[in-house]
């Protein structure tokens, strides 16, 4: 099976905010980064993937199965790591394990203790005494101890220091080594993903702007810098958004080929980071 998660025309409306007509696939065996500004609808989308929220319209399928008929089978195969602590904060890890473990058919105590040791987590201290990073690691240890095929993480790096974030990325690559797992990872800290993500899904104001491999993103998007005189109504069409300064312009294109054809050697073309892409996309928004 190629797609672990499949969203078809998924729509969810709230007062003053909605997630519109999302079509998205998450490919098996890869890390998909889910990016977007705060409030873009990432958590709403993840909640629909977890069946915490039901879409108003559209179809959500995990492992090719529907929640209406296979809720338990699906959740058996998912490991989740949320932004905040969802575990009973007064309990220690041992007690949490006693509550969460038996919920899974494939729960493996040995594996759990292995990760607890690897992450250097205390078993007998209440979760509420854990730092943000430790809480995240505790969630991850639980997610990994029942042999989850899909690990869904909602902003796991928010509030973590850079060293810890690097450690996490290392760890994620390690658990991807056998190729069976899939990671879906939402974040607004895009530098985490610039390196290790295989696919990038970009959500803005409740709409999916793209879901491409990191290669395609690098091939299609670029930063272009040049003299103001080069811009006119026709040449501007190649750009998503343009920033003008007295010293020249800087713009984002989603069509590198066209830019090369139009401007040739007269402009500087540079790789656009995910942050650049998000930033310029936001700019386009304000014109519309």
């Amino acid at each position: 099976m190629e797609n672990v998660v499949e969203l078809k025309n998924v729509t969810k409306n709230f007062k003053g905010f909605s997630v519109k007509n999302i079509n998205m696939q998450v490919k098996q065996g890869f890390i998909t980064g889910f990016i977007g500004a705060n409030g873009a609808g990432k958590s709403t989308t993840i909640k629909m993937m977890m069946n915490l929220l039901r879409p108003d319209a559209g179809e959500v399928k995990l492992f090719g199965l529907d929640y209406r008929t296979h809720e338990k089978e699906i959740k058996e195969r998912i490991g989740f790591v949320y932004d905040g602590n969802v575990f009973f904060e007064g309990l220690n890890l041992k007690d949490i394990k006693r509550i969460v473990g038996p919920a899974y058919k494939k729960w493996d105590d040995t594996l759990f203790y292995k990760y607890v040791a690897q992450f250097q987590l205390p078993l007998n201290k209440p979760i509420k005494t854990f730092s943000k990073g430790m809480q995240m690691k505790a969630s991850l240890a639980i997610a990994l101890s029942h042999d989850a095929e899909l690990i869904i993480m909602d902003e796991p790096t928010a509030g973590l220091d850079p060293i810890f974030r690097r450690e996490l990325l290392d760890l994620l690559q390690e658990i991807m080594l056998d190729g069976r797992r899939t990671i879906f990872f939402s974040t607004h800290i895009t530098t985490d993903l610039d390196r290790i993500a295989d696919y990038i899904a970009f959500l803005q104001n409740g709409e999916l702007i793209f879901n491409q491999s990191i290669d395609d993103v690098a091939n299609n998007y670029a930063l272009v810098k040049g003299e103001l005189g080069l811009l006119d109504r026709d040449t501007e069409k190649a750009f998503v958004d343009i920033h003008r300064a007295p010293t020249g312009f800087e713009a984002l294109t989603d069509n590198v080929k066209a830019v090369k054809k139009t401007f040739g050697e007269s402009v500087v073309i540079e790789r656009a980071s995910l942050e650049d892409i998000m930033y310029y996309m936001k700019g386009r928004e304000s014109y519309v």
Binding site: G29, F30, I31, D170, Q173, M176, L177, D178, I196
Partner: peptide, 16 residues
């Protein structure tokens, strides 16, 4: 090295 091992060692994506 396997593509996944190499990706991990170089800290880059598997797709690359």
């Amino acid at each position: 090295p396997s593509i996944r091992q190499l990706a991990k060692d170089l800290k880059i994506s598997v797709i690359t």
